[in-house]
Design a binder for these strands. Structure first.
Lengths: 250, 250
DNA sequence: GCTTCCCTTTGACGCAGATCAAGACGCGCC
DNA sequence: GGCGCGTCTTGATCTGCGTCAAAGGGAAGC
């Protein structure tokens, strides 16, 4: 399966004096601004520049724990992993971020990034100053609302894996959440690539890599999905839903 | 130990035409507004009214899962527990909230509360419309910053317990986090009441109540703390710190 | 005072999943 | 092709914590 083309027609706004403002359609922000009717003068005043970064290649870092917090990034293409290194030198995977999602929000409180972010494959980003974005938000109420929503959503999402779920419930929830998030952005909901290694999935789900392997094997034997290397096809979504239900709360 | 008196001198702003705006000093918001020099006209225009609610008694609900999201609340006194009921009818404790802390932020994204909040003892609250607060924030940049920080902080906090820590690490982290949060508000850091039941602690830490009991017993036997009923005294903070270190990340 | 109820503690046992160990597979390189 | 290496799988064993069961307080009510 080659990576499906993914919608990323950028929005480019030419202000009155020719200075250009770039928003890419995958950042949730542009939608908010357009909905507000684009107060061009306000935008120009603020010199908000959304910088397009990339391509980054697998293993390259977007930011590292302790870096001064200057900018927030939105993923345009590829997969980003966020993680911390605990005092024993163990990596702890905090999350995976797909196109259209924003990373670095937990850095707003405090002046340094509390985690590191690394590209898992070829990644394209939008990067922008949060300060300037916030200033813009004071003039564009819809943008402020969007920012509040993004932050609020992350609080809920972080709570998701905190429950004491069994290994197969966690795995089902992980796969379905990934399916949903990808399909929201125009990818297939039933067939997709696990862009991260088994060890990363295990670490994220707080399981041993061996357990991840065994659970996936069992899912396949039970006809819930077909998996070959890193390619997944969801076969029996209803039963996966039933497993993941209590975790995803629906 | 009787509950120590806790600073809650309210800030009351009388606007030009006599309409009154109330902020209590325990909400982080008033500080932001004062720092900005209080644009009284802006405030008055917006009719932001911070409503003082309470006292609520143990067992009374502040809001319930599914309630329409209209207002956010800040705890002025007492302890609030937030929780959800999962599809099997099991309660899941999401967190405990002490004076000065804000509850309900995860409801911003979506128009209904995603969890319930109940008083564990006698609780006093500030309640206010988030919409109006956000509108006010467009005029008072410091207030907007404060709101962003509050939200961002909660993202980080939710991540805290997501790790796969051992029972004693979780317990140590819970006790120290409680100690820190209470001392930030002027309470003793070494001697305080567990205002929640063992079952609530267990549920929150994703442990069995029996395990909570055993761990606390062992902590006492090892000279880390003294506990009698719900009153705790931290005796050996350095060793508790060492246990909790990886969890609290410091 | 006594009773009832709930919270808490303590002990015995079992299991899900971690850990340890060893292969299997895919892939890039020479 | 053959080699080396990292990722993944599979099997055997171990263990922390959950579960079950029962008994010991405190607090509230009569």
């Amino acid at each position: 399966m080659s990576a499906p083309a993914f919608p990323r027609s950028d929005v480019r706004i030419l202000a009155d004096d020719g200075d250009a403002l770039h928003f890419c359609s995958t950042c949730a922000f542009s939608q908010a601004c357009i909905a507000e009717g684009m107060h061009k003068h306000a935008l120009l005043d603020l010199h908000v520049l959304v910088e397009h970064v990339g391509p980054l290649h697998a293993g390259e870092h977007i930011f590292r724990e302790g870096d001064p917090f200057v900018a927030i990034a939105a993923v345009r293409a590829g997969t980003v992993k966020t993680y911390v290194i605990d005092p024993n030198g163990e990596e702890q995977v905090l999350g995976f971020h797909f196109p259209g999602e924003v990373i670095g929000l937990s850095a707003i409180d405090g002046d340094r990034f509390p985690c590191s972010a690394v590209a898992l494959d070829t990644v394209m980003l939008c990067r922008f100053s949060f300060q300037k974005m916030a200033l813009l938000a004071t003039r564009v109420p819809g943008l402020q609302r969007q920012l509040f929503r993004l932050l609020s959503r992350d609080i809920g999402r972080a709570t998701l894996l905190a429950g004491d779920w069994a290994a197969d419930q966690r795995m089902a929830a992980f796969l379905l959440a990934m399916s949903r998030r990808l399909s929201e952005r125009g990818f297939s909901a039933v067939r997709f690539q696990l862009t991260m290694a088994r060890t990363d999935i295990a670490n994220y789900l707080r399981l041993a890599p061996e357990t991840v392997s065994r659970v996936l094997r069992r899912f396949q034997d039970d006809g819930l999905l077909v998996i070959e290397r890193r390619e997944v096809e969801i076969v029996d979504q209803p039963r996966l839903n039933a497993l993941a239900g209590p975790v995803l709360r629906d």
